[in-house]
Design a binder for these strands. Structure first.
Length: 441
DNA sequence: CCCCCCCC
C-alpha cells in the first residue's frame, strides 16, 4: 500500500488516494486504487499483508507509465465496494510477488525504455547490498531531499541505487538494525520493488518511486535462492564498514549554469521551465520615477503592480488583497560591458552583480525577457591581490549577526580569503537582497 | 482521478 499525493504545482496538496497491490491464491496480482473520498470507508480495515474478500468494485484498463504490476487491469473501489477481512488464511496466498529482472538486463531494459517516452512498467531487482551510505540530505533544484545510496550486485553486475525521502529513512533504519545484530557476516540480500531505471554517465542507476519497497534479508525463498546462487558463483563480499555516523551530512548544491542574457533568452524549451541559471550582469540603470520602487503583489512569482482600493492593495492578476504592498525595485541590467553607463543614480548602478534567475511561464511560452531573479551575488575586485574576488555566499553568512561577507579568492592567495565589506555598502546589499525576489530587469 | 522528478 502507498498513498498518492497530489502535486504541489496544482496548489492542491493532499491525499489523492491509496494504491494497493492485490495478490490472489493463483499468484495473480493487480493494482488497485481507492480515491480519497472512498478511502475513509476502508481506512481502518485494510492492512498490508492481510487477506480480504473484496466485492462490488469496478475495473478498467490501467493507463500511465511505471505501472507497479504487470497487469493491464486496474481495480477501482466505489463507495459501495465491500471489504471483509478473512481471519484464517485457508487460501495460502503468499505475502509477496516479485517480477525480478536480472541485473545484467537492466542496461538493455533502460535503453529500450529510453526509446519510448515513458517505461510502461516499473522494475523489481534482487541482489547483495554493498557500499551503503547512511541517510543524508541533498539539495535539489526545488529544495532538499533525503536520500540513501548503495550498490546492488549479483557478483557479476553492480548498479547504483538511490532511495528517496521516506523510504530512505526506513531503509537507513533497517540497515542499522542489521548492523547492530551480533552475527552480521552474511551478505545482506536486498529486494527493491517497483523501481525506475535511469542512465547516468553510461551506466544504469536504480531510483525508487512512491510505489517502491525495499526488503533487507526478507524471509522468503527467493532470498535463499539468491544466497545459493552467490555461493555457487563464489561471491566474496566486501568488508562492510560499520560507521558510527549518525549526523545528517549536507551535500552542497549542484552547480548552476552561468549564461549570458542572450543565451538565457534562447532557453525557451519547456525543459527549462522553473530551472535556475546564473547571469553575470552589469546594472545599467535603476529606474527612478517618483521613487525607485513600486507597490507590488506579495505573492511570490507575481510581479504585478497592486492598486490601492478602499484602503487595501489589490492585485488584479492574483485577485487578492493585502493590507500593505510589497515594495518592488525594478533595475535594468546588461552584460554588454563596452557600453557607456549612465551616471550613478543609485548605489547599484554600474555594479557587476550575478543574479540567479528562475525561468517562468512567460519566459518559456511568450519568450519574455523580463526575468524573475531569486537570488543575487556581487562580484568584488580585491585590490590587494589584484585578482578578482567573488562573494561566495550572499545568504546566511552575508547577513548573519556579524555582518561579514565571506569571499573566495579565485587566485587562492592565502590570507586573502575573507574581507569585511564596509557597513555602508552592506546596507545597500541588504536592501537588494531583501527585495531581489521582486526585481524585474 | 492510478503513472513523478529530484542527487552524483
Amino acid at each position: 500500500m502507498w498513498p498518492s499525493m497530489s502535486n504541489a504545482s496544482n496548489g492542491n496538496q493532499g491525499l489523492k488516494g491509496y494504491n494497493l497491490i492485490l495478490l490472489d491464491d493463483d499468484d495473480c496480482h493487480v493494482h488497485a486504487f481507492i480515491y480519497a473520498d472512498n478511502w475513509k470507508h476502508h481506512a481502518e480495515k485494510i492492512e498490508e499483508g492481510s487477506v480480504y474478500i473484496m466485492s462490488n468494485f469496478y475495473t478498467k484498463q490501467s493507463n500511465g507509465s511505471l505501472k507497479p504490476a504487470s497487469s493491464s487491469i486496474l481495480i477501482n473501489f466505489s463507495p459501495s465496494t465491500s471489504v471483509q477481512k478473512v481471519e484464517e488464511d485457508d487460501f495460502m496466498i503468499p505475502l509477496h510477488k516479485f517480477e525480478f529482472v536480472d541485473l545484467s538486463d537492466l542496461f538493455n531494459l533502460e535503453t529500450a525504455n529510453a526509446n519510448i517516452e515513458f517505461p510502461e512498467f516499473s522494475t523489481d531487482v534482487i541482489g547483495v547490498l554493498e557500499d551503503f551510505e547512511y541517510v543524508s540530505k541533498i539539495k535539489i533544484v526545488y529544495g532538499e531531499k533525503k536520500i540513501v545510496k548503495f550498490r546492488i550486485t549479483d557478483g557479476r553486475h553492480s548498479h547504483k541505487v538511490t532511495v528517496w525521502e521516506a523510504l530512505a529513512t526506513k531503509t537507513d533504519a533497517a540497515y542499522r538494525a542489521i548492523e547492530e545484530q551480533p552475527n552480521t557476516k552474511e551478505p545482506i540480500i536486498v529486494i527493491i520493488s517497483s523501481t525506475k531505471l535511469r542512465t547516468f554517465r553510461n551506466s544504469v542507476q536504480i531510483n525508487t518511486l512512491p510505489s517502491s519497497k525495499i526488503y533487507l534479508n526478507l524471509d522468503n525463498e527467493v532470498v535463499t535462492a539468491m544466497r545459493q546462487r552467490l555461493n555457487e558463483e563464489g561471491y566474496v563480499q566486501l568488508e562492510r564498514t560499520i560507521s558510527p555516523t549518525t549526523q545528517i551530512k549536507n551535500v552542497s548544491a549542484p552547480a548552476i549554469e552561468t549564461l549570458t542574457l542572450k543565451e538565457l533568452s534562447e532557453r525557451t524549451s519547456s525543459d527549462y521551465l522553473k530551472r535556475s541559471f546564473l547571469c553575470k550582469v552589469n546594472v545599467k540603470n535603476v529606474e527612478q520615477n517618483d521613487s525607485w520602487w513600486y507597490n507590488g503583489c506579495h505573492k511570490s512569482k507575481c510581479n504585478e503592480e497592486v492598486s490601492k482600493l478602499e484602503g487595501k492593495y489589490r492585485c488584479f492578476k492574483c485577485t487578492r488583497n493585502y493590507p500593505l504592498p510589497q515594495k518592488n525595485y525594478p533595475i535594468l541590467c546588461s552584460d554588454e560591458t563596452d557600453k557607456a553607463y549612465p551616471a550613478v543614480v543609485k548605489e547599484l548602478s554600474g555594479r557587476d552583480i550575478i543574479v540567479q534567475i528562475e525561468l517562468n511561464d512567460d519566459n518559456i511560452l511568450l519568450s519574455s525577457t523580463v526575468y524573475h531573479a531569486t537570488d543575487a551575488y556581487q562580484s568584488v575586485i580585491c585590490t590587494s591581490s589584484k585578482s578578482e574576488t567573488t562573494i561566495s555566499s550572499f545568504g546566511a553568512s552575508a547577513f548573519g549577526d556579524n555582518n561579514l561577507i565571506e569571499v573566495s579568492d579565485t587566485s587562492t592567495t592565502p590570507g586573502n580569503l575573507k574581507r569585511k565589506i564596509a557597513s555602508n555598502s552592506f546596507a545597500v546589499l541588504e536592501s537588494v537582497r531583501k527585495n531581489l525576489e521582486k526585481i524585474s530587469f
